[in-house]
C-alpha cells in the first residue's frame, strides 16, 4: 500500500494528463492525442489543439499544482500549523497586489523593453516575500495558529481592498487584463512563456526536495531541530525563499488560486498515512499536479466550458478538506 501510493499517483497523473489533452470543447481521439504529442497528428486542427493549446495548459496546471502544494507543505511545517497555505496566509494576495500595481502601471514600464513576464513575476515574488515577512513577524508574537491564520486572512482583505482602489485609478485595458488574471486560470500561459513558470517552479521544488531531512527535524519543533544539528535560522530562510518563489511565480502566471496549496498536503498525508517528508514531499507535489489537472479538467469539461471559474472548483475541493482537518480535532494549536 505504502509504495503503491506513488504508483497510484503516477498512474492518475498519466491518465489525467491524457484526459486533459483529449477532453474539451473539441473531443480529440486518444490516437490523435498521442500523435499530436509527437507532432504526427493527421488532422492539423488536432495538432494545434493538442500541441498548441492543451499541452501548455496541462503543463501549466501540473507545474502550478506541484508548486502550490509544495509551498503549502513547507509553510505547514515551518509554522507548525496544518492550516497554513499560500492563499489563507495572504501570500497569494500579496503577490496579487504587487501584480496589480505593475499591471495597472503598465503604461509606464511597458516602453522600457523589459519582458513583461519577468516584471510581473518579479513583482509577484516580491509581494509574496513582503507578506511572508509580515506573517513571520506575527508568528513570533502570537500564541496560537488560529490567530496567525486570522492575521493572514486580514492581510488578504487588506491587499484586496488596496487592489480595488488601484482599479478605480486605472485605464480600462489594464483593468480588464487584471480582472481576468484575478479569476485564476491555467490557460494564460502559452508555450513561448512556459519557461518563465517552469524554471522557478522546478528549481523551487528541487530545492525543497533537498531539505527533507531538516524538515523532518523541524516537525519536533525548532529547539529539537537545533539539538539534532539543524541550522534552524538558515533552514527558515531557505523555506521562506522557496515558498515565496513558488507561490509568487504561480500566482503571477495563474492568478490567485484558492486552497490547492493548503489542501493538497492533507490529501497526500491521508493517502500515505505519514508526516515523514522523505515520502510526504514527493507525494504532495505529485498530488498537487494531479489535483490541479483534475480541477482544470472540470473547468474545461464540455458543457461547462469556461463558465465555471477555476477558483470555484478548487474551493469546492479545498474548503471541505479544511473543515475535515478542523473537525478531526488533532491538537494543532501549538503547545507552550
Amino acid at each position: 500500500m505504502r509504495t503503491g501510493a506513488f504508483a497510484l499517483l503516477l498512474v492518475l497523473l498519466g491518465l489525467l494528463f491524457l484526459a486533459h489533452l483529449a477532453i474539451g470543447s473539441v473531443r480529440v481521439p486518444l490516437v490523435e492525442v498521442f500523435a499530436g504529442l509527437f507532432g504526427t497528428a493527421k488532422d492539423p486542427a488536432h495538432a494545434l489543439i493538442v500541441g498548441g493549446v492543451r499541452l501548455p495548459q496541462a503543463l501549466t496546471a501540473m507545474l502550478a499544482g506541484a508548486g502550490l502544494a509544495t509551498s503549502g507543505l513547507l509553510m505547514q511545517t515551518l509554522f507548525r500549523n496544518p492550516l497554513a497555505g499560500p492563499s489563507v496566509l495572504g501570500i497569494g494576495s500579496g503577490a496579487g497586489l504587487a501584480v496589480a500595481v505593475v499591471m495597472l502601471a503598465g503604461p509606464f514600464w511597458r516602453s522600457w523593453g523589459l519582458p513583461a513576464d519577468l516584471v510581473i513575476e518579479g513583482a509577484a515574488i516580491a509581494g509574496a516575500f513582503a507578506v511572508l515577512a509580515i506573517i513571520l513577524f506575527a508568528d513570533r508574537r502570537v500564541q496560537d495558529g488560529i490567530t496567525l491564520l486570522i492575521v493572514g486572512l486580514m492581510l488578504g482583505y487588506l491587499c484586496a481592498a488596496l487592489v480595488s482602489f488601484l482599479e478605480v485609478a486605472s485605464d480600462s485595458a489594464a483593468l480588464k487584463g487584471f480582472v481576468l488574471w484575478g479569476m485564476g486560470s491555467f490557460a494564460q500561459v502559452t508555450t513561448e512563456r512556459l519557461h518563465w513558470l517552469a524554471v522557478p517552479v522546478l528549481v523551487g521544488t528541487l530545492a525543497a526536495l533537498r531539505l527533507v531531512k531538516p524538515l523532518n527535524a523541524l516537525l519536533l519543533g525548532e529547539a529539537y531541530a537545533h539539538s539534532l544539528g539543524t541550522r534552524v535560522n538558515r533552514l527558515r530562510t531557505g523555506l521562506i525563499l522557496i515558498t515565496g518563489v513558488l507561490a509568487g511565480t504561480v500566482t503571477a502566471f495563474c492568478g490567485p488560486i484558492a486552497f490547492l496549496g493548503l489542501a493538497t498536503p492533507h490529501v497526500a498525508r491521508a493517502l500515505l498515512g505519514t508526516g515523514d517528508h522523505t515520502r510526504l514531499l514527493p507525494a504532495t507535489l505529485l498530488m498537487g499536479a494531479v489535483l490541479a489537472l483534475a480541477c482544470d479538467l472540470v473547468v474545461r469539461w464540455p458543457g461547462l466550458a469556461g463558465r465555471v471559474p477555476l477558483n470555484a472548483v478548487t474551493s469546492l475541493l479545498g474548503a471541505p478538506v479544511v473543515v475535515w482537518v478542523l473537525l478531526r480535532g488533532r491538537n494543532w494549536v501549538r503547545g507552550t
Binding site: 507548525r80 496544518p82 523532518n216 527535524a217 516537525l219 519536533l220 519543533g221 529547539a223 529539537y224 539534532l228 498525508r269 498515512g273 505519514t274 508526516g275 515523514d276 488533532r330 491538537n331 494543532w332 503547545g335 507552550t336
Partner: peptide, 16 residues
Amino acid sequence: ERASPALLDVRTVVAL
C-alpha cells in the same frame, strides 16, 4: 514542551 507532530509513528520519531 510537548512535541506533537502530525502523523509520525514512534519509530520514525526515535530514528530522527
